[in-house]
Amino acid sequence: MNINKKPLALMAIILSAGALIVTSSMSGNAALAAEEQADRPDPMLIVKGAKAWKENCGRCHNLRSPKELTDDEWDTSVTHMRVRANLAKKDTDAIRAFLKASN
């Protein structure tokens, strides 16, 4: 059987090169995903934050929507409220995690 092997060889090369690139990319993505996972707060912290947010922030004023401020603005705003409302750091950390997760 007369088979022209040139296209097959080229296809094999392209596939192997693609596989290498994809594998390498997946390896990079996996590393990034692992980093993101490491940066992601504990889900229980977010739950505690939602509770602390409702109990403490609503004590003096209406609850603002988490989407009202950016993450950076929430950072500063929650720090301000840590002082003004006599909150412990663990409470503000939880509230901050909840607000950012909901933002």
Partner: peptide, 18 residues
Amino acid sequence: ETANNAEKTADNVQKTVK
């Protein structure tokens, strides 16, 4: 030769990703 080049390219890509 092309496969070798592709492998080198893939290595380069991997290095670039890193």
